[in-house]
Design a protein around this nucleic acid. Structure first.
Lengths: 227, 227, 227, 227
DNA sequence: GATGAATGAGTATTCATTCAT
DNA sequence: CATGAATGAATACTCATTCAT
């Protein structure tokens, strides 16, 4: 017998049964039962992030990722089925905590809370600008990623909406403000401003000045600045 | 996610600029001195828009454009050097007049001016959502298009800034507002909101309600709503 | 803009419409409207036959076929979608006329008719042994080809069955013969013998002797040899 | 037809013989001195048969066999050198006794002997149809397996030939029959019919009817049916 | 013996772009 | 100018086989 190989098409889909092929996992592969396996997988995800940040999604070749991870070509497919698969993993692994403020703000005045949240958002955005930019890119042609991105925006809006509604009930926010729409608009304001500032290298504003102004506009807009 | 792939020219790997390539002259070809030529060219541009809107830039193959235009494969290159070239032409041909309000608003009160501008922006955005989406896509990997897009945003911001500054000098806008930063923020608010509303199919707001609320937030934010 | 390219996954199957993709043609491509085109296509089919006969289906690479046809790699895909596609074309192009006897046998005695048919079958089989062997190979894993092959056998059997039934009605064939089953059995005898003789390089019988014996067995079996 | 592909080792490119490769010693490995070892080996062979029958040889991956046997990927190579090696083992392990009739037929009349042999052949064929199909597949590209298959046919023919010659000497078979050629032809008839009946799902004949008709044709053909 | 992670040879396939007619 | 056939660079992906633990 021998070693060489040829390829044949798996035409016979019909006469012969197919492998069950646990679909649903599709994206995730090679488990990493071993410590070594988990390490390699981790390596790949980290390298992928580096490559994506450097080259963008479109210009990142799987070969580039493997090279960066110092792993053979085949190993990639032990763990991931495609570039999309590993990208999703990268997105998940990145703790892009644009929303939640870590420091306790419970005791702060509404204005200071908003300022803290805005500062946190801008800061996180700036720190993760490279990968966020790629996520935005991919979301323009990959529904899965778009869904993730939109989910984040929606969550952001919901937090704002909830808080705004509370303030409104306390009489701190104008009654004619629609909390839901305002949440999307003000969330869009901060996000849109961040994109202009960090993606498009526009007129570089001073960081703290930007935080102050965004906060000022925000509180003015909903009425929180009134005496 | 998926398996198949298409190829796109790496026109300009995202932010990494390259070959200076005096575009503008090199992209444009066979101008179409003949009536027949001009017609073919026109056909191609129109078909390209259709295809781009339907498939996005990345999934649009030159073959698709030619098929749509009922023009031979080779003829494409009589008029354009690449997919980017015709895309630029498409972008130029589209009168995306998000900014300028056609109806004279000179006599209107500030609030009504802003309302009219916001309504116009949202409306134009909605009407051109398909191609705007593609422009956004391309701007994530093509510096040329990014420049065009950013230029539009900057112009938008400048208009707002100028007007805001005027109002501020008249005492209608709070003095602690930074006209430039506010312009970017409020412009971002409207643009960001439009994206959420028309790209991401989010919670569908009533159009006029959205216009009202955006306007309300805006005028509150800068102080134009005060007595 | 530029020349180089990258690949992107055509994930967005959903947000954006796909090409209509006239399925159903799937296998057949590039038409060959031009004489040149038709010629190239023809070239490819002929080269494919040569390669398949030489290397078998499994070890034939598309590259081999292109090389044989002195055609670029890409050209193959202008005309065919896969190795299977061109193989089907090869099978169709091969006039494997195992069944029909060209020379008029209408006037011959039943025995001489059968002898003529057997001789024709063995001769055609021998002449096309190489490609027939490949067809048999492919039919073990490709349903499409299996169908073609079975169809041929069925047709063969039907011809035999019809004739046998006629003879039976004329009292020339034993009444206890089941024409349908006999047709499959006797057809199988000739075909099976041919495979042993031409595929498996077994004990090489004299051609005319084989024809005579097969005919003798056949006519004895159904009773045509009786006085 | 299809797109995906699997690889098969080019054990022996069809008829083109190669590396003598003292198989038999090289194919067999870790014989399993331990009880545990023997068990694992046995597991693998059984699983291989299951997988081959289900997926055919070409579409069976070594990984599939290991999965079926619940054995690690690496363990396979402790016992076998390749897919061919284990396939040979499977073939050997299968008692495909198409030829020998178990029940004593010594006392039977010639006709009844033939009937018993035909019944036995068809029955064994039916029972082992799945693996026989795979053997046929492999024999189209693996000389080793082709040799095994041909050897079986030759043996079959020799048995028939011997018996036929005896009957001929006893004057029970027509003198103008060539025992050798008739053996190949009649053996081919039964084998060919079985393939049509059990591989190609053709017109399903009644089992006993088929046995009767094959026997009838057979005895008529050689003259055993004469008074 | 058993395990499963790592490796890489070997091909298929797409699509922008050129060029002879 | 129009046509569409021909080209080939650029990658993705599978799976048999090896090897360290």
């Amino acid at each position: 017998m021998a070693n060489q190989s040829v390829r044949i098409p798996n035409a016979s889909r019909g006469r012969r049964a197919e492998e069950p092929d646990q679909v649903g996992e599709q994206a995730r592969r090679g488990t990493g039962r071993t410590a070594r396996g988990r390490q390699t997988r981790q390596h790949l995800v980290e390298s992928a992030r580096t490559v994506f940040e450097r080259q963008g999604f479109l210009h990142a070749r799987i070969a580039d990722i493997c090279k960066e991870a110092e792993v053979s070509h085949g190993s990639f497919y032990t763990y991931f089925t495609s570039k999309e698969a590993i990208f999703t993993e990268v997105v998940d692994s990145v703790e892009i905590d644009l929303l939640r403020v870590d420091t306790p703000v419970e005791d702060l005045e509404p204005i200071e809370r908003i300022r803290a949240a805005n500062r946190h958002y801008l800061q996180s955005f700036q720190e993760n600008a490279d990968i966020l930019r790629v996520i935005e890119q991919v979301s323009t042609f990959d529904d899965e990623v778009l869904r993730i991105r939109v989910a984040r925006e929606v969550e952001f809006a919901q937090i704002i909406e909830r808080r705004t509604r509370e303030y409104q009930e306390e009489g701190l926010v104008y009654p004619d403000i629609d909390p839901s729409l305002a949440a999307h608009a003000l969330g869009g304001m901060v996000a849109g401003f961040a994109e202009q500032m960090f993606f498009e290298n526009q007129q570089s504003f001073d960081f703290e000045h930007a935080v102050d102004q965004l906060t000022l506009l925000w509180v003015n807009a909903v009425g929180l600045s009134r005496p």
